[in-house]
Design a protein around this nucleic acid. Structure first.
Length: 878
RNA sequence: GGGCGAUUAGCUCAGAUGGUUAGAGCGCUGGUCUCACAUACCAGAGGUCGUUGGUUCGAAUCCAAUAUCGCCCACCA
């Protein structure tokens, strides 16, 4: 017995376990079926499911299930990312609670601790993905730091090093003083803040006078080793070669000429701090300037900062300004908006700092990756993201891949402190080949994104030559958010091409961000986060997934509101109840072998409509237009199947009408219900399985194993659709009159129809028209219009509802007037178009004909309405 | 500084290669507990598609400007 209201709670878990037990998620690399593979964007082990994951994985699951049902050997590889900095931070916070820190614990103990944490809390998100219904192949689950992947990372590092693509160098990198590590350019998020441009006087070393420098970062002046002017700048040319006294430090530094200096910015004089600014570093290299670091790894001033040593960099800024001011060296303060980089993990302002780091040369890797997208070996959808991709790839800079943290892939490099030899090796090393001295291993680890960049092939077993790689690489599709297009997607493309010699995926579908109902980004600090798991508890997974799909229009952010989900919850309930009714009609229906073509018009109509629905659903899924998929199904099920079809077959299946073959109707109903469940399954896996299992006859033991409906042209039936349009149209006309003139639903009316050559069709379906429009009696006439009636016109057919006491003449008159006014407006527009000679000349014949036909019909309809209107007006006068 | 996107009903959004009477959900108005569903049913109101030009027989749809909002990238201190 089915409940009156669908209750998702027990059902979801039951079926998920069932699918697991049946191994439906496990791909078979021996299968003869065409493969369809995806790798999951591995969520961070620190993470718990948020809306972004929910959307991302719902869309992937829709594709995985759809492809599986469409006969593909569908593989969806799951896994998690070790998320270096993020995870280390989490565990460090835990340690802090115990009054510990990683330094006192030591590297080995600390890493043990992180692993322990990972085992205990790192799996949460996987369980959450299961609640979302994800059909991942859990037997192939990977972790970016597991043994196989670690091996692959080393392999890649060594190969890239041997090819000269990985190098170690001193360069300005983004340093996070809180995480105490270098970051890549992408990991520093730029933010505009209101700051100042300080104008500082640098006295000339020889003689009176000074040059004024404008800077946003006065604290770095302690590390200045020159000031620069543009050699073309007539104001300052003469100073080139002279010296100034660096204030506070009281050191002589040269005035140099460099074309980099913009004469129109600030004072046209630039302070050069090679150790704390990229451009200054470049100038310094060109001019052989000394580099003086003044800020330490923890963001405090160091020993080169004189009496500022030990002071926080921002406090130092204030104090330096005071000191300069006291010395009369502060000329001016200008408000100025500047961009500062912040650590993407902890939001601390990063310090550009000269540092010895490992880098990966990007240009040689980027070129083939650009080509792959340019010639569409990889298709990025929506296309606009291609431009963004190209823009970044064409201006790519070398990637700082080393991190000074402990949690991650330790760089496979060993140093001999005796003979200064360096080894890069896949295998662990202990002794120096030449001097037999003990080797010291590099302490840095790799950027987390280094290993995730290898994800599509390392998860399939690389560097071993596995069957999985052979069958499932390149993967078919990657679904991800635009926020990691550079971090992840671009790097996978480069690495895939480099190490597999082929693209990592053929298509990339980029989806938008999930925002709150007001369009704001969801964040904990704003308190506007909607927790997917609470939504699931409240409305069920199916309603949640369908909502996400429904809102997932390409290229636009998704605004999620609770009302929206509630609406879909109602839809799930509608499906439940429609199925309940359908199942009661189908009864113990035995097999499809007695499949009879029905002659009952609604049967023929619904089958024809079903075919079009199935076709449109497939097309929209293939085109990643998930919102379209959802609304096609929504409208079909609710409007066509429930509101019309089920209502129309009731008389037959309740036995009120016996003129039609009710077995054929039951067959039709059964087939249509099956089709609905199947097209819905990728979006709503649970409720569809639950209902499917209740079918008296199933073609498979699970809906997951059944076949996605295919477009069956032989069931298309335009003639039946046309005839149904007439039946529905007549019912609509009566309902409109009823509604507009205020006849209560429980009051039946009589109706007179002048049906012309459609009379026999309407007579045949008279009973159904009566039922759906709540009519007591229909009389058909060929005569003139009856007077004292409300009138409605559908094509050539006129429908009269005698007024009796039911209808207020004035209401009916205003209804007719409204309708005539609308027709007049439409006619005016159509006539204008049709009277235009160049329209008749240049528009396609078919468009002209259609417009003409519309126009003619409007005129006829208008005439009929007018006749009735006149009758009513006479009546109301008399 | 460069690039991208958005602007359609009160709200949130659909409208792929130009030819509709511009759609949906929620909300709103009126009427119904009609034997699957009140998480429902029936009817209705509501839009000169940001602005201005242009291309075209025809523009919400293509082009160009402009305004407002949002995002991304960027080594002018």
């Amino acid at each position: 017995m089915m409940e009156k209201v669908y209750n998702p709670h027990d059902i979801e878990d039951k079926w998920y376990k069932f699918w697991i037990k049946k191994n439906y998620f496990t791909a078979d690399n021996e299968s003869k079926n065409q493969p369809f593979s995806m790798v999951i964007p591995p969520p961070n082990v620190t993470g718990s499911l948020h809306m972004g994951h929910a959307l991302n994985n719902t869309l992937q699951d829709i594709m995985a299930r759809y492809k599986k049902m469409s006969g593909f050997n569908s593989l969806w590889v799951p896994g998690t990312d070790h998320a270096g900095i993020a995870t280390q931070n989490v565990v460090e916070r835990e340690l802090a609670k115990e009054g510990l820190d990683r330094e006192t614990l030591g590297r080995e103990k600390f890493i043990e601790r992180v692993w322990k944490w990972k085992e205990q809390s790192g799996g949460i998100i996987i369980e959450q993905l299961k609640r979302l219904g994800c059909s991942c192949d859990w037997s192939r689950q990977r972790f970016t730091l597991d043994e196989g992947l670690s091996r692959a990372v080393r392999e890649v590092f060594v190969r890239l090093y041997n090819e000269g693509l990985i190098y170690r160098d001193n360069y300005i990198i983004n340093w996070c003083p809180r995480c105490k590590t270098a970051l890549s350019d992408l990991e520093a998020e730029h933010e505009e803040i209101q700051g100042h441009l300080w104008h500082i006087k640098y006295p000339l070393a020889d003689g009176p006078g000074y040059l004024t420098v404008a800077t946003t970062r006065p604290e770095t002046m302690l590390g200045d080793t020159a000031i620069a002017v543009n050699p073309e700048d007539e104001r300052y040319q003469k100073y080139i070669g002279q010296y100034v006294i660096l204030p506070i430090v009281e050191k002589k530094i040269p005035v140099i000429g460099d074309a980099y200096v913009d004469t129109s910015f600030g004072t046209g004089v630039l302070k050069v701090t090679p150790a704390h600014d990229v451009n200054d570093f470049e100038i310094g290299k060109r001019r052989n300037l000394e580099t003086v670091k003044v800020i330490d790894d923890d963001g405090r001033m160091n020993e080169n900062a004189g009496h500022y040593q030990g002071m926080d960099r921002f406090e130092c800024r204030e104090k330096i300004i005071d000191e300069l001011n006291n010395k009369g060296l502060l000329e001016n303060i200008e408000p100025y908006a500047l961009g500062v980089g912040k650590c993407y993990r902890c939001k601390t302002v990063v310090e550009p700092s000269l540092s010895l780091q490992w880098f990966l040369k990007m240009k040689p890797l980027a070129e083939p990756a650009i080509a792959a997208v340019r010639d569409h070996r990889i298709r990025i959808i929506p296309e606009m993201w291609e431009k963004v991709y190209f823009e970044w790839m064409e201006n790519i800079r070398d990637w700082c891949i080393s991190r000074q943290i402990w949690w991650g892939h330790r760089i496979p490099v060993w140093y001999c402190d005796h003979c200064n030899k360096m080894y890069v090796s896949v295998e662990d090393l202990t002794k120096c080949d030449s001097c037999k001295g003990k080797l010291r291993r590099e302490t840095d680890v790799l950027d987390t994104w280094f290993s995730s960049g290898l994800w599509p092939f390392t998860t399939l077993g690389w560097p071993a030559n596995t069957k999985d790689l052979k069958v499932f690489y390149p993967t078919a599709l990657l679904i991800t958010g635009f926020d990691i297009l550079f971090f992840w997607v671009a790097r996978m493309i480069m690495m895939g091409l480099k190490f597999m010699g082929d693209v990592p995926f053929r298509e990339v579908y980029i989806h938008a961000l999930v925002r709150d109902a007001e369009g704001k980004k969801m964040s904990k600090s704003k308190g506007n986060v909607i927790d997917p798991l609470i939504v699931i508890d409240q409305y069920g997974t199916d309603a949640f997934r369908f909502s996400l799909a429904m809102l997932a229009a390409q290229g636009r952010d998704i605004l999620l509101s609770e009302e929206r989900i509630e609406g879909v919850r109602n839809f799930v309930n509608k499906i439940w109840n429609a199925s309940k009714l359908s199942l009661s009609f189908i009864g113990n229906y035995e097999s499809q072998s007695n499949h009879r073509q029905s002659s009952f018009l609604p049967d023929r109509w619904i089958r024809s409509r079903t075919q079009k629905m199935v076709r449109d659903v497939s097309e929209s899924i293939e085109g990643y237009r998930f919102n379209e998929t959802a609304s096609i199904i929504y409208n079909f099920v609710w409007r066509e199947f429930c509101d019309w079809y089920l209502e129309l077959i009731k008389p037959n299946l309740y036995g009120k009408v016996t003129a039609f073959d009710s077995e054929a109707t039951r067959t039709t109903l059964y087939l249509t219900l099956c089709d609905i469940l199947k097209v819905l399954h990728p979006l709503m896996p649970f409720v569809t399985e639950e209902i499917y299992q209740r079918l008296p006859v199933k073609d498979h033991e699970s809906i997951m194993a059944s076949n996605f409906p295919y477009f069956n042209e032989s069931e298309l039936d335009e003639d039946s659709e046309d005839r149904m349009d007439i039946v529905m149209g007549i019912i609509d006309v009566v309902r409109n009159i009823r509604g507009e003139t205020g006849i209560a639903p429980n009051v039946k009316v009589d109706v007179i129809i002048r049906g012309g050559d459609r009379t026999s069709l309407l007579k045949e379906y008279e009973y159904y028209i009566k039922e759906l429009a709540r009519i007591e009696q229909i009389s058909f006439t060929a005569d003139v219009a009856p007077d004292q009636s409300a009138v409605g016109v559908y094509h050539e057919i006129e429908v009269f509802v005698p007024l009796k006491d039911l209808i207020d003449v004035s209401k009916e008159l205003s209804r007719i007037n409204k309708e005539i006014a609308k027709i007049d407006e439409d006619c005016r527009r159509l006539k204008q178009k049709l009277d235009n000679p160049s329209f008749r000349e240049k528009a396609p014949q078919e468009v002209i004909e259609k417009n003409q036909a519309n126009y003619d019909e409007y005129l006829r309809k208008r005439e009929k309405l007018l006749a009735s209107k006149n009758l009513l007006e006479n009546l109301s006068r008399s």
